[in-house]
Write a protein that binds this DNA or RNA. Structure first.
Length: 848
DNA sequence: GTACACTACATACC
DNA sequence: ACTGGTATGTAGTGTAC
């Protein structure tokens, strides 16, 4: 049998003690296939360069005898080959040792205790990663596979019970040109009685999906085996049909045909499993479903003593431990969109929180439905109806989000070459590392090992190294500014100076690059191109290529591709400085920062020598005043500077600005760093660091500050802005300010009990807990500061929750929100807002 | 009892 | 623990006078 498919899901099983990789994929005819491929595990043993051929032969014979006996299996060395490889910049001879079972590779590696073997490597790479790396069968690309169809008569360890159209034992797999692939996405969402996992009943479960068929199919035939086929939505303008359903065992109404009612929670759960199986999606998508929906379903299934057999082999979801456990369903890729957005996609968002409502509003222009939660017994028939709508709507926006983010998920998976399950959950360092691992073969390089616990401890104890340079600004309002910045500065420094673990030299060598790390002394790097900088250079080139491709042909895919390369390039520097990295190199990271400082300081000097006044600089950007010079002259200077920059480093024009303001720190009168506001000739604002952009300030103060900055920057003076402040203070004093304007939001970053300092938001969180509201790490706590009967000195004693009765605390909002937000802006014009507010208050309160 | 230094914490910039 | 360092600013905490 021969078929063409794209691998979507990867896993492996043991059969007679050996490892078989299982890929679940789709053919272009939309058939689900399961490809099984024998894959022998292996690792490397690197030999001391002095080892002679005779000794090598002896060692080989010795190693061939190694074996491990376990009750369940015997793992032995199956085969050894001697290979010429590279390892951290050196040519080495290494044994590639094939063993029976990957799970024992660590143990077998430990048995190789010979003085001639100087290092053992790659026993710690997950089998799937190794499989993809060595056999080059990448997720979401296309392959043809030949092999025998596994039938019921086969004794292959229950494999034939996998719910797929075909299951084959691969004999040959070959790359074929990519084909179009439309993912089958099924979104789901649950509503439960209690917030705590498994504590309450699951009231309802919603499903939302595009009905998986081509346009020629009549919807009425699609779910013909279903009692509920009429619940398919009609075709939309794009000729698409959607499947929507709410499963519940609570009060059903006849008016909502998408609601299906069952007699018990258990029956509802069983039907949920059945429907997911019938819909047969490639991706089951939730929002925060690793942390809530899936574990909740499992807990309730357990409680009801039923099996949540969602897996294609009828297995239940498994939860890998980690900071957040990841819910894996065999054969179906479970995606928790929240995790993907949190680690990867949030950088492209403006949203201040990453809740479904805000993220969906931003990306889709469609937020959550409003619904007021109440205890079950307080819900009217009408409330239940709204509740079902609400639940379905959550699945709907989750589905639409998944579609929206699909190009990014797809491109990242293809570029990183790891399955979608992993890339939607792994952090930035893991993505960079996977990219490196999958590209090592280009350099014939053996992979470095993952640091063990002890090593991580050592690395962390080394402490921080000196980072970026930030220019000390002078407070003031400036006109006619130019902003230059380095393109991907740290990455370009790594490439240009060849900074990495494999190029780092333990001692000075001839022709080496010497980097001065200040107090930490001198370090040296080889000028022979290392694989890490070389790989990074290629990433940057690809980013450039795909960026211009995107500009020529803008589409979500070209954009996603360009962004994915940018993502890796930007994370490379942090990766080398990250204690958990295989290719951790503190010296390289510290040198990257040092050489970046050196370069930006040199550029600052050049700009100053060309008689411009530099007003600010942070890490990779420089702002300066054009004074009487033209923009063209500034651009000529830019060209000139670029000619003398090392390697691939490049400086570019960020923009020209009509005006810019820098303010003083609140404690001293020196200029504050990382805090400024700019405006272009087209009145486009760029505000950095100010309270306006900080979510832990109340909207009133933020909006006022933002408006004040705008007025000042547009007009070049403070007059109108001052009037606005006066008006706002008057309003505040007259108690005309709406409650939502004075609400403060602060994130709870750890469990309540771990706070050493009891801050206002901790008190607010405790209050929430008391009234039975859900409180969890990561939540934004909303509260306001109220007037109190007795005089209280601490802010936390005046904290009230949004729906508590009480007046806002005038003194607090005046002196701790409004005035601090605008005080240092008016200081630039020698106006003392505080005196103004107080002075008027004493003489004539009504003036405000 | 309050002034001050210091710490804890959250959030931003790049 | 889940990329790095630099920076501001608020509120709480502890201590001296």
């Amino acid at each position: 049998m021969k078929l063409e498919f794209t691998p979507i899901y990867y896993d492996y099983i043991d059969y007679h003690g050996k490892n078989y990789v299982i890929m679940i994929g789709r053919t272009k005819e939309n058939k689900r296939v399961c490809i099984i491929d024998y894959f022998p595990a292996s690792f490397y043993a690197i030999l001391d360069e002095k080892t002679g051929d005779k000794k090598i032969e002896e060692l080989k014979k010795e190693i061939e005898k190694k074996r491990i006996e376990l009750p369940s299996r015997t793992t032995k060395v199956e085969k050894i080959s001697l290979e010429e490889k590279n390892f951290l910049g050196k040519q080495v001879k290494a044994f590639k040792i094939f063993i029976t079972n990957h799970k024992d590779s660590h143990k077998i590696a430990e048995l190789l205790d010979y003085k001639e073997i100087i290092a053992r490597r790659e026993y710690d790479i997950p089998l799937i990663t190794k499989y993809i790396k060595e056999k080059e069968i990448n997720p979401m690309e296309w392959y043809s596979a030949e092999g025998e169809i596994l039938t019921g008569s086969s004794d292959f360890s229950g494999i034939t019970s996998i719910d797929a159209d075909f299951c084959i034992m691969a004999e040959k797999i070959e790359k074929i040109p990519d084909k179009e692939f439309n993912p089958k996405i099924l979104a789901f969402d649950i509503e439960a009685e209690e917030f705590e996992i498994g504590k309450g009943e699951i009231l309802m479960i919603s499903l939302y999906s595009e009905s998986f068929m081509d346009n020629s199919v009549n919807p009425s035939t699609l779910f013909q085996n279903y009692p509920d086929r009429k619940f398919c939505e009609k075709r939309d303008t794009a000729n698409r049909i959607f499947y929507k359903k709410v499963l519940t065992w609570k009060k059903c109404t006849k008016k909502q045909d998408f609601v299906e009612c069952f007699s018990s929670e258990a029956e509802m759960l069983e039907k949920f499993v059945e429907y997911v199986k019938k819909l047969s999606p490639d991706f089951l998508v939730g929002y925060f479903s690793d942390g809530f929906d899936l574990p909740y379903l499992r807990a309730r299934a357990e409680y009801n003593r039923i099996k949540l057999s969602l897996g294609l082999d009828n297995s239940q979801p498994s939860f890998a431990r980690g900071r957040i456990s990841s819910g894996n369903i065999f054969g179906i890729v479970h995606i928790d969109l929240f995790r993907f957005i949190e680690t990867i996609f949030s950088q492209y968002l403006q949203s201040e929180t990453l809740g479904l409502d805000e993220v969906a509003s931003e990306l889709l222009g469609l937020g959550k439905k409003e619904f007021e939660f109440k205890p079950q017994n307080k819900l009217s028939q009408e409330d239940w109806k709204d509740f079902f709508d609400y639940n379905l709507h959550d699945s709907k926006i989750t589905f639409l989000l998944a579609e929206k983010l699909w190009p990014d998920v797809l491109e990242i998976s293809k570029i990183i070459q790891e399955p979608i399950f992993d890339i939607t959950r792994n952090g930035m360092s893991q993505l960079v590392e996977s990219y490196i691992l999958h590209n090592l073969d280009e350099y014939n390089e053996i992979a470095e090992k993952r640091p063990i616990h002890e090593e991580i401890g050592k690395r962390r104890n080394l402490g921080k190294y000196e980072g970026a340079f930030v220019f000390q600004p002078t407070p003031g309002l400036y006109e006619n500014l130019a902003f230059f910045d380095f393109t991907s500065m740290y990455s370009s420094v790594i490439v240009s100076y060849n900074l990495s673990l494999s190029t780092f030299l333990k001692k000075k060598e001839k022709n080496a690059l010497e980097v001065n790390l200040g107090e930490e002394g001198l370090v040296y790097f080889s000028k022979l191109k290392g694989f890490f900088p070389d790989l990074l250079e290629k990433i940057i080139e690809k980013r450039k290529k795909y960026k211009s491709e995107y500009k020529k042909n803008p589409s979500p895919i070209t954009k996603a591709r360009s962004n994915a390369y940018k993502l890796i390039a930007n994370a490379a520097y942090g990766y080398q400085g990250f204690f958990g990295a295989r290719y951790y190199c503190r010296e390289a990271a510290a040198s990257t920062a040092a050489l970046s400082r050196k370069n930006i300081l040199e550029v600052i000097e050049k700009i100053q020598k060309a008689e411009y006044k530099v007003v600010y600089s942070d890490t990779d950007s420089i702002a300066f005043i054009l004074e009487n010079k033209t923009k063209e002259r500034a651009l000529e200077l830019l060209e000139k500077i670029n000619k003398n920059l090392p390697g691939i480093m490049a400086l570019e024009l960020e923009d020209f600005y009509k005006r810019g303001i820098w303010v003083a720190k609140k404690t001293t009168d020196t200029g504050a760093k990382k805090k400024y506001a700019l405006i272009t000739e087209n009145n486009k604002m760029k505000i950095r660091g100010f309270e306006t952009v900080r979510r832990d300030w109340c909207p009133l103060a933020r909006a006022l500050q933002s408006k004040v900055l705008e007025l000042i920057l547009k007009q070049g003076n403070e007059k109108e802005a001052l009037e606005l402040v006066k008006k706002t203070i008057k309003n505040l004093k007259e108690r005309k300010v709406q409650r939502e304007e004075i609400m403060i939001r602060t994130q709870l970053k750890k469990p309540l009990s771990e706070y050493k300092s009891i801050t206002p938001h901790v008190i607010a969180a405790e209050k929430m807990k008391q009234v039975g509201m859900p409180v969890d790490i990561g939540m934004l706590i909303h509260y306001f500061i109220a007037e109190t009967r007795e005089k209280k000195s601490l802010v936390r004693e005046k904290v009230k929750l949004p729906d508590e009765k009480g007046e806002y605390n005038l003194d607090y909002y005046l002196n701790h929100q409004i005035i601090p937000a605008v005080e240092n802006i008016f200081d630039v014009f020698s106006i003392n807002i505080k005196e103004l507010a107080e002075g008027r208050k004493q003489t004539k309160l009504s003036g405000f």
